[in-house]
Design a protein around this nucleic acid. Structure first.
Lengths: 115, 115
DNA sequence: CGGTATCCGAAATGATACTG
DNA sequence: CAGTATCATTTCGGATACCG
């Protein structure tokens, strides 16, 4: 997990929300979560195409952080050419599920912008 | 709302999650949401004390963005000395509720770090 | 194919001083 | 009290080139 200066970190935080925010706190992470939930066992290049605009560097670093956070599983097959597949862990699936109400809130708000 | 380069923005995003992520996409925003949910009608200085480490500038700009996003309501009483109270709007309360599963996920994970 | 290394610019945050 | 203004710093993400 990245070592950042968490708001409520030092003296113990009041709710678990900031813990979760760190895990999803990258520009593409929730999209990676979403993509891997819909398309398990995705290869690096495929994932890249599923997320238009992401660069190799950022995708790779996000995936490594998410792997370190235990939400993404990386499976490397020792073949030529190399093949690597990414999926969500159980915890990653639960995280994605926990994101659902937030997605609903966002969709509702998009549907009713004013009043 | 802040104008950022949203991942799925240009061609329409797949889920509402990134819309929500923008609204809570500030270092202290979820904590502000949480604090205002537990302590409605909080004044600027009180809020600042509720969020140890936040600076005036960041708190003020976050509050203004959240107000613009319609999740925070600012009420200014024309008195001397000045008094301003912040609360969540209905939408802000819903957002905070939508954050609950995420907070649960974070708390569970803190409780069970490894398996 | 699946990455890593380096450099760079933008954006977010922080420190401090000042104001109505 | 409740901010704003300015400047410094940090962090993140993007572009590009290269490697096993």
């Amino acid at each position: 997990m990245a070592t950042v200066n968490r708001p409520g970190g030092a003296d113990g935080h009041v709710c678990g929300i900031d813990t979760a925010m760190e895990v999803i706190g990258g520009k593409w992470k929730v999209l990676i979560l979403w993509a891997l939930h819909q398309h398990p066992g995705r290869r690096f290049g495929e994932l890249r195409r599923l997320l238009p605009g992401v660069t190799e560097k950022v995708l790779a670093s996000h995936l490594r952080e998410m792997e370190a956070d235990g939400v993404v599983r990386r499976v490397s097959y020792d073949e030529v050419p190399p093949r690597v597949e990414y999926s969500l862990t159980e915890d990653g699936v639960r995280l994605n599920d926990a994101l659902q109400p937030l997605a609903d809130w966002g969709r509702e708000r998009a549907a009713a912008p004013s009043t």
